[in-house]
Design a protein around this nucleic acid. Sequence first.
DNA 1: TACGATAGAGAACATTCGTTCCATAAGGGT
DNA 2: ACCCTTATGGAACGAATGTTCTCTATCGTA
Lengths: 202, 202
Amino acid sequence: MFSIVQAMGNPNRDQEYLGKLQDYYADYRSIPSYAVIGDMLGMASKSAVSALIKRLTLAGYVEMTPDKRLAPTKRFFERELADFPIPAGMPAAANDAMSESLTIDEYLIPKPSNTIMVRVKGDSMIDAGIHDGDIAIVEKRHAASVGDIVVAVVDNEYTLKELGRDRQGYMLLPHNADYAPIRPQEGLEIFGIMVGLVRKYR
Amino acid sequence: MFSIVQAMGNPNRDQEYLGKLQDYYADYRSIPSYAVIGDMLGMASKSAVSALIKRLTLAGYVEMTPDKRLAPTKRFFERELADFPIPAGMPAAANDAMSESLTIDEYLIPKPSNTIMVRVKGDSMIDAGIHDGDIAIVEKRHAASVGDIVVAVVDNEYTLKELGRDRQGYMLLPHNADYAPIRPQEGLEIFGIMVGLVRKYR
DNA sequence: TACGATAGAGAACATTCGTTCCATAAGGGT
DNA sequence: ACCCTTATGGAACGAATGTTCTCTATCGTA
């Protein structure tokens, strides 16, 4: 077998180097020259950097563009997803058994072309863990099932609610005791269904 | 006055050039050399490219990294963000939500090498809108402030709680009436602080 | 402890980089 | 039609790039 980890000579060291490269790229959206990389990583020679880049290329973290410029690959942006409890050793150990790699975008947005993000306003869904200021990932479509959290058009306004139904027909259910269910007068237009949530702290 | 548009000599032309650069960057996550850019845009001389880059820099679409490497700015990605087909009435909210970021990863993870994702177990934080199965974005560090939601080590186990404090010292506050605050016996080890949350429906 | 593999230092090298200067073509505005 | 600004072509140049080679230090393993 030939795993990613094995492709990198000294996993720990290279993982650390990769981390610094990722941080730099996060700041500047560009990969610096070998000289600068060496400087950044504490290497005194470009040949060491050259070797490192070869290893990272083999491992699939970076690649050459058709113009022979160094560029990050998809894997460059992936993160480890660990389950509780976190193993004692920690620093993002590449343990395939209990962790998988993915980017958040990939995880939440399977169909980019008809997915939009909407900032949530108000507390009407707070009991569903959807807070004011959160970002809802919404997949646009006109059909929804009972129980889905949907973005619907009511009275020319967009609202985020759970789609409910009883003998009298469809309705929109807030998740907050202070709000009452909404029974649309003249039909209910579904704009899309909520497929994900993103919240940022601080 | 001095507007962005005025900063670009021939707006239409430069806009077209910018578009091609954006397309290239979308493909390879890297900006090619002046020679290649010229080739790509149908320019025969690098001096023309040099001038173009000066204009784009002035207009705020690209910039030089501290290492004098060309890199896209936030504004460089404007098009893709503005492209969201936002229906009338669906306020700029969608834009404003992440206006400064191209991807959710970028939005939530400023320090990739320091950040891990952990799947939340249990509902001890459910009143803070953190549910079982959600993914917590955790920035690793040992210092935290009261009020932060932290991943702490208690009895050799990792927990996610709010960091609290009273006269008797620090403690960990669940957000669920069924759970009691935790007062660590022998010191409190902070593993990291929660900086983001990601949830996927269905 | 000795061995083998490998990361890294250091220097030399051809290539490519982006800048700069000047000349020319193309528009836009009066 | 004129001028004046500006985009582009073309060539020359010094600086910086990444590769390659040899040599040394380090670390894991037998």
